[in-house]
Design a protein around this nucleic acid. Sequence first.
DNA 1: GCCGGCTGAATGGCGGTTCATTCAACAGCC
DNA 2: GGCTGTTGAATGAACCGCCATTCAGCCGGC
Lengths: 203, 203
Amino acid sequence: MAVHSTAKKKGSADKRDRILRAAIKVFAKNGFYATRVSEIAKAAGVADGTIYLYFKNKDDVLITIFEDGIQQLLAILREVAASEQPFDERITRIIELQLGLLEDQRDLAEVITVNLRQSSSLLKQYAAPLFMEYIDVIAGLIRDGQKEGAFRKDINSRVVARSLFGALDAILLTWALGEADPPSLRKAASHCASLFLEGLRVR
Amino acid sequence: MAVHSTAKKKGSADKRDRILRAAIKVFAKNGFYATRVSEIAKAAGVADGTIYLYFKNKDDVLITIFEDGIQQLLAILREVAASEQPFDERITRIIELQLGLLEDQRDLAEVITVNLRQSSSLLKQYAAPLFMEYIDVIAGLIRDGQKEGAFRKDINSRVVARSLFGALDAILLTWALGEADPPSLRKAASHCASLFLEGLRVR
DNA sequence: GCCGGCTGAATGGCGGTTCATTCAACAGCC
DNA sequence: GGCTGTTGAATGAACCGCCATTCAGCCGGC
């Protein structure tokens, strides 16, 4: 057997990926609830039942996509937040990376931003902690900047973090839903960065 | 005769309201898709079938809630945007009004922010235009401010508008989902206003 | 020929919607 | 004012289509 390298209880890891990628595509187009499991299967070139060899159920597929995406984002975020660059630089990089990461993954962007809100209590359970973790990383960076005098101190760091998150989310949403092209996204990112940096400047 | 004052084609307008209010409550708690029509009926103290006397179907209930809420918001927005106050003042007022309006309506806030994203193509159809209208009003105000030299001109007004919307949305979301008390919401509003105003200042 | 991954038709139940029935309110009539 | 016929809002049990999930078989590799 020598099952290549990837650990696996059963089935090829490749098939699992095919399913996930297909699911992202279909969820993005139709939304979670309107998506039939059979559609995911068809898009993945797989039988309906096969999905249940790799995932507990339909919810599990969405949760997996969501967690993977956020974890990816969190990893980058933490790295940048902890870097030794000037604070302004770090904020800018976070914004650019975050929007850039999803730039060639419209579908993933849409699944995350759109389906984050599908609030079956089940998903709320999963989304809330990750969301908080996310906010915490940014808020921590802001707070550090305030402590070191790089940012004004008269604004609550968590409010800034939430605002920044929301702003990026909204930009991403209109980009994902609309016709906007990648260049416009990058331009939006730099405008957004400038807006927040000026807003945070000590005067 | 003399049916009090409210016009009515059929049924009491009061009953329609009861249903809407109940639906807001239940949608907020469980999300649209997880909500059973029978739950709305029970919460409204009404039979299942009665709901179909006032609404075409379940979607129609959500759409009505959503449209009413946004229209309410848009009306206020337009008024403030067109007022003769200084631009800074107008922005601040918009932020405060918007958050304040929903302060004592947690459930409505949650339904709007959370279910805005439920992307059955049907709802996308309804949500997108209203969302755009909303963005347009804010973007218009920013653009006017830029033209008159109140705000810096090197930032795209639509990007600012989207960012502001997203920021408010995120603040509202954490407030609606979390335990935060009203005072904290008002404080968040003023911090957010300050952040954006400084960010927009001409230098 | 045996094992395990895979298949996809069959199933079961779930829940939005319908509609036959009820009955309170009202108008016309005496 | 009482009696009666009519209306249509309200009801809620039943219906029916849909779709997530299952599982009895089917390969294909060893």
